[in-house]
Design a protein around this nucleic acid. Sequence first.
RNA 1: GGAGACGUCGCAUAGUCUGGUCUAGUGCGCCGCCCUGCUAAGGCGGUAGGGGAGCAAUCCCCUCGAGGGUUCAAAUCCCUCCGUCUCCGCCA
Length: 424
Amino acid sequence: MIDLRALRDDPETFRASQRARGADEHLVDTVLDLDARRREALAAFEAKRAEQKSLGRLVAQAQGEEKTELLARTKALAAEVKALEAEASELAQRAEAAAFEIPNLVLDGVPAGGEDDYAVLRHVGTPRDFAAEGVEVRDHLAIGEALRAIDTERGAKVSGSRFYFLTGIGARLELALLNAAMDKAVAAGLTPMITPTLVKPEAMAGTGFLGEHAAEVYHLPQDDLYLVGTSEVALAGYHAGEILDLSDGPLRYAGWSACYRREAGSHGRDTRGIIRVHQFHKVEMFVYARPEDAEAEHERILAFEEEMLDLVELPYRVIDTAAGDLGTSAARKFDCEAWLPSQERWLELTSTSNCTTFQARRLGVRERTEDGSTRIVATLNGTLATTRWIVALLENHQQADGSVRVPEGLRPYLGGLEVLTPVA
RNA sequence: GGAGACGUCGCAUAGUCUGGUCUAGUGCGCCGCCCUGCUAAGGCGGUAGGGGAGCAAUCCCCUCGAGGGUUCAAAUCCCUCCGUCUCCGCCA
């Protein structure tokens, strides 16, 4: 939810933001108009309501004929009040619905344009030259099957396409990655959390996932609950409706959860292996910060992600996502993409969004300021590890003999194992 | 799954039966001031959130778990939902 008062004060900034996203800028004027009408209707209702209340007080004290007469007046008033209230609340709903359509205001410096208009901020590490090494590149599924680590056939048998089993060393590898991520989070001062994966509509809507991406989300109609696509949803809802004390710095969490995605719009994309699946695990960072600290905190989260990528020794690049490719809630987003040797392209492994006050406004998360008043906080999120990392790990560390080298940072989580060897 | 009790402005509690000076009282906590060698005690005052109008002082509206309803008028009566607790059943 955008800041209506800010939109009223400076609509041009919002129009510019809409243009950068390739979204409809006239929506701003629709909201402006509805908001003006809403306030007008509200003032009319409130004036009439005040009259009704003061008259009501007289009724309580009056006796006999005077009372009868007052009752007649106040009875007529009641009908007017009811009508004005209905009008005001209808306009309030329409204004809010329109305001909900406007995605978050993009930050200065975010590249304009769509999916392909990202800016590459830097490259870290160098992809291996497999040809020079004499290694015939195999993709993660071929490697994973040889290691008896990934079983997509039985995943499909049990649950359908885009499901899989991680077996043996595959299961251990995922646990190793996620445990390493959790340890990293704890060392960095984040509070580890294991979160619900079924949430109420309010939590889902509050994080902005029921807008244009509603088709991506699993819904259980019998219980009106949603399966989360990320623990961000639960962690954002965690402090919903609360007034926080951020005087000792931001509140930083790391949520471990299963994630569920329908992948409704991605038929035919990444159908092989476990790159794009319906269910996976993730350790997600989530931060509540003061609005003026949000950009610094965003850099901090990005730094944690990069440290994690360094730990597993993956070559990657960092991109600054273009406005049109931002989620509804995000004002800026940095992705880290690891090199995928089998396809010779970059694969998103982490994504960190600065949602400024957009999510917190919907969810009613505020802080108590020095002067005793309250104001909306900023929220940020970022990936620390997911099941998908296994893909990049297997491919980048594969060796000529079909084995896979375990990066040193991960060895303590695999009982010191240095090499994953194919099962004969 | 069944039966019952409960949900009030940070915390605790009054108010609900019997609708109207409830414009939600009181205690604790917190903040300011006074008193006072210091501290404690005591005294006085202030202490929820959201929204609207206004240059401002200020005024008004909404919120007593949430949403509806009845009524001239709802914390109070009725309905639905959510949550907490107790007991029973069922399952671990």
